[in-house]
């Protein structure tokens, strides 16, 4: 169990323990827009890592192309700023090469569900022991605001000026269908809840996914009548239904515009790297 002291660490101490903050004197700044949900995700991940008491030199974050791609560099752990969508494949290589590493991919919705969908579902199918954090801001933001595989029907973006006419993916259902053994959802409003989900996901042995609905008021919000971060936080607060909550969560979840947060799926299943080496030992023994 995590100690109460670790649960309640003040932000300044948390930063000292986990972060590599921008050096203002060298002209470095955080690269997120003011009010971006990514800052909340970053601090939740920092808290989760701190609570887990892992040696940060054995932690690797893998990012791709997107606003979230830089996030891993703000930690004292290792970071691979890789290509767009390939992070789960990098994770498979890292874990097979050194099973002692803790691998966390930091991905976006376009990154994990479009260009990297194949790597995402196949890593899930293998049940490789990595954690995939999907920062879902309902479209492509780093490129200026285009629609993607998670943009809601009707969502206005630069490439869907009359509203998005494609059905979106449900990242969590996709992950469950593909074989992920821990799947959770949170939002940028639920900072403490998100921390808990990340902590449990990293602790889970097997392929774990945390989808965070993360506001992008600057690009997606501006074009869809919600230009303030606070409007999004309110939206997330009022429309999230706790998974397994008493009082008809099932029915409320079915309402349009509602989504379930919490652990949506969890199971124990032999893990990929362990299965690989167990099988390899058989081959080695037979020769």
């Amino acid at each position: 169990m995590t100690s109460a002291r670790r649960m309640a660490i003040p932000m300044v101490e948390l930063a000292k323990a986990t972060a590599r903050l921008p050096d203002a004197q060298a002209g470095e700044t955080f690269r997120y827009c003011p009010g971006c949900g990514l800052g909340i995700v970053q601090s939740a991940l920092a808290r989760a890592l701190y609570r887990l008491e892992i040696d940060l030199s054995t932690v690797v974050t893998v990012g791709g192309s997107g606003c979230y791609g830089i996030m891993g560099e703000y930690f004292q752990s290792n970071h691979i700023h890789g290509s767009h969508g390939r992070a789960p494949a990098v994770g498979v290589g890292l874990k097979l090469a050194n099973p002692k590493l803790t691998v966390i991919t930091i991905q976006g919705d376009g990154d994990a569900l479009a260009i990297g969908a194949s790597h995402f579902i196949h890593a899930a199918r293998r049940n490789v022991d990595i954690t995939v954090l999907i920062c879902n801001n309902f479209g492509y933001a780093n490129t200026g605001g285009q629609y993607g595989p998670s943009t809601p029907l009707g969502g206005v973006t630069e490439t869907s000026p009359a509203g998005c006419f494609e059905y979106p993916f449900d990242a969590c259902q996709l992950a469950i269908g593909a074989g992920a053994t821990f799947v959770a959802r949170s939002t940028s409003y639920h900072a403490i809840h998100m921390t808990n989900m990340l902590e449990r996901a990293i602790r889970h042995k097997g392929f774990s996914v945390v989808e965070v609905l993360q506001h992008c008021h600057v690009l997606y919000g501006k074009r869809n009548g919600m230009p303030e971060a606070t409007q999004w936080l309110t939206l997330f607060k009022e429309n999230s239904v706790r998974a397994g909550a008493p009082g008809g969560a099932e029915a409320r979840r079915a309402e349009p515009g509602k989504w379930e947060i919490g652990v949506l799926h969890q199971e124990e299943k032999p893990e990929f790297v362990e299965m690989y080496f167990a099988t390899a030992a058989k081959l080695a023994g037979n020769r």
């Binding site: 494949a89 498979v92 790597h119």
Partner: peptide, 20 residues
């Protein structure tokens, strides 16, 4: 290991090379 495509192979190599 067999990956989902050549792109996956290359990035698994990248991860494994980074791990030594």
């Amino acid at each position: 290991v067999q990956m989902e495509d050549e792109c996956g192979s290359m990035h698994a190599l990248l991860g494994a090379a980074a791990a030594g």
